[in-house]
Structure formats: C-alpha cells, structure tokens
Amino acid sequence: MHPLAAASDSTGGFQGPSIDEFFPSVLLFDGTPFEINRIMLARFFAVIVLFLVFWLGTRKMKLVPGRFQSIVEMGLDLVRVNIAEDLLGKKDGKRFLPILTTVFFMVLFMNLTGIIPGFNIAGTSLIGIPLILAAVAYVVFIYAGIRKHPGAFFKNALVPPGVPWPLYIIVTPIELVSTFVLRPVTLTLRLLMNMIVGHLLLVLFFTATSFFLFESGNLFALFGIGTIAFGFVFTLFEILVAVLQAYVFSLLTAVYAQLALNDEH
C-alpha cells in the first residue's frame, strides 16, 4: 500500500503523501485499545466544540432569537425540517430526530477538523466513524422496518409481492445485496473516501508548495505559487464537501428509514 511513497523514492527530494497519513504516531496509551493519536484528538476537539456550540446556543433560548441562537436554530432546523420531517413526516421524524441530528453534526464537525490548522485531519478520515455511523443507519432502518411491519419486513424487502415467481430468482439476490449489503458499504465508503482524498490532495498541494519554495531551484519556486493557490481553493472546496457529506449521510439515513417504514408494496 505504498504506491505514492514508492514513487516518491525515485524522485529524490520530494516526499508525496501516502496512506500512512492516516496512521500517525501514537501519543497516549500505546498498545491498549485506547490508543490516542492526532486523529483521535481531532475527534475529541470536534466533540468539545460541538458541545460548547450547542450548549451555549441553547442555554438561554429566547422566543425572539439573537444572532447566535438563530444560527444554532438554523442548523437544528435544517435537520429537523428538511431531513426528518420532510422525509419521515412529523411523527416518525420526531422519533428519529436525535439520531439524525447526531449523524449530521457529528459528520459535519469531524469533517471540518480536516481544515482546522493544527489538526489538519478529518476525524472521519479513519474508517471507524463512517463505519459506526453506517452501522447506526443500518440498525435504524432495520429497526424501523421491523417495528412497522413485524414479521413481514424481511419478506417484503426480499420477496416483494406482485412479481411473477420466476423473477424471484433474480429479484431476491439483487434486493438482498442492494438493501442489506450495499447500503452500509456505500455509506461508509462515500464518506471515508471523500475525506481521505480531500486530505491527500491538501497534503500534496502544501508539501509540493514547501518543496518548490524551499528545496528546488530558483525557477521552480514559481510553481509554488500555483500549488499554494490550488491548496487554498481546495481548502474552500473541503468546507463544501464537509457540509455536503454530512447532509448526504444524514439524508440517506432518513431515506433508508423511510423506505423501511413505507415498505408495503
């Protein structure tokens, strides 16, 4: 798994980013299941900031909100109205609101640590968080389906009624794979790969800038201007990706729950 590292060896001075970016050295509790490295610190930081923002933002809520409260309300309403209530309706939206809000803001804040100076790594760029959240989404939609259609959920999902019986030979494996295998896998990989690639791009641009400016010959320094400009643009792009991935992840969690709830055929 060192294609870039291997390539960089042959170029001499320049060291491109590798997948080892995501496995930084252990800072605490080495060798235990509680090992802490820079990515874990970024996650803790995200949790603390999230707690402070929402604790302070909802501490003394007024009926006529101030600026800060308005922003906090806007964020919470984005999940409550645009995701939960739009897709699941008032009643079911309320049931799943804590999970959906958690998914949205956890992904958002942990994505954003990728562009915070000092961390420069998204808490979601290790497979742990995407995997856990995908598992949560998986449990949520299966739970919703079983509660709504006890006994009939798996049958409806795998052997949808109204299909001529020979087609079940094709339909059932497709449904099994798409519903119960691909959903969590795509949820995990979409978020993970977005964050990994975004981080690698940023590292590439900034290490290249450093290399051009300080290690290469005079004229190559000009390339450094281009690479740092790209680094800046992609930093902005990472903000967009952070918000978008948080939205997509929580939206898909709600969509899967909604499909399970409406699975009547």
């Binding site: 798994m1 997948i19 080892d20 995501f22 496995f23 509790f29 235990t32 299941p33 509680f34 090992e35 802490i36 490295n37 990515i39 874990m40 996650r43 803790f44 995200a46 949790v47 999230l50 707690f51 929402f54 604790w55 909802t58 919470l76 804590p98 999970i99 809000t101 958690t102 803001f105 956890m106 942990m110 808490g123 290790l126 497979i127 742990g128 968080i129 995997l131 856990i132 959240l133 949560v136 993970l192 990994i196």
Partner: peptide
C-alpha cells in the same frame, strides 16, 4: 496499513464520540 480495516482504538473512540454526541443532542439540545 489498510484504510478499510478498522483498528480497535478507532472503533472504541469513534463509539465514545458517537455516544457523547448522541447524549448531547438527545438529552440536552
């Protein structure tokens, strides 16, 4: 390292963070 294979600390701290955030929203916010 295989980025698709989760390490134990990754899952442990990820779960801790998830539970913490869930509690913040569910019980407080």
């Amino acid at each position: 390292h295989n980025p698709l294979l989760p390490a134990t600390p990754d899952l442990v701290w990820g779960a801790v963070c998830f539970v913490a955030i869930l509690l913040i929203f569910w019980r407080l916010v």
